[in-house]
Amino acid sequence: MDAVPADDTALLVDFYRTMLLVRRFEEKVGQMYGMGLIGGFCHLYIGQEAVVVGMDAAIRADDAVITSYRCHAHALVRGVPPAAIMAELTGRGTGISKGKGGSMHMFDIARGFYGGHGIVGAQVPLGAGIAFAQKYQKRDNVTLVFFGEGAANQGQVYETFNMASLWSLPAIFVIENNQYAMGTAIGRAKAGTELCHRGEAFGIRGIQVDGMDVVAVHEASRELVARVRDGEGPMLVEMQTYRYRGHSMSDPVKYRTRDEVQKVRERQDPIEQLRVRLIEGGAVDDAALKAIDRDVKKTVAEAAEHAQTSPEPDISELMTDIMLDAAGRNA
């Protein structure tokens, strides 16, 4: 499908719904983590919703997406059922990875979602490999390769830029610049903070986009996707965004002030921006958006209920999915 024009009310309402789903889902995850129902490392996407929602709406169902460990939102927008993601977070057998991956390792290749990778930057060459396969098989697909501004200092990112450009791979490298690599503010770790230029030495054109504005994200993404799909080779986009919560659930966030976070929430919140735009434009009324809020809350509540009532994985799962036999069955 081609992306719908960005002035399309139905599309904007859909953006609102999906961003709200991500927000409420992640809030619930944070709550359940606090209750001890979710374990391990857990990285929330709250604040960054416009990036993944605006971009996903610019690609097709048969395109590919790969990202880091901050992956719940990317799975949600690709259409992975919220209940399967939540059950993975609670470590249940009905989770998307049968409870064997957890927060950082979710995959759904049938929906073009290639994970969910725990080592910072490792998904970048993998993503180029997916784009390589798309080109090798002469398909007109693209791959969105998401990584944070922290990962943008990893060497393998530049090894990948070099090959992707050399072989003109249909990859879009998306730097989700949420300003903090764990506790390190961007200015403390980067010689040159204009990350959109990081591909230029390899001939990869880069643009910078307001990643808090879902419409801006979507419009920029449509153009990028069209060009990459047309065979122009890889491109890079730096999404200027912000995460409201800590790097992970165990991060006490001592490296910035509450005031800084509050200012972003008040002035740039992606969901609030869109809500105001919809209401002030007269496209929808408050009641319609409230109905969406109720629907989303219900979906999240059902996912949470499912995730708490589903059975633990069968103990036999410990030793499955390690090796396949020649027929592709568990060996």
């Binding site: 060459p125 180029a128 090959m163």
Partner: peptide, 21 residues
């Protein structure tokens, strides 16, 4: 032929395998 970039090209090849090659 790849550039001298073992981390990169091994990762790329592994990604291509995950994508069906």
């Amino acid at each position: 032929d790849t550039p001298i970039t073992e981390h990169g090209f091994a990762g790329l090849a592994i990604g291509a395998a995950m994508a069906g090659l």
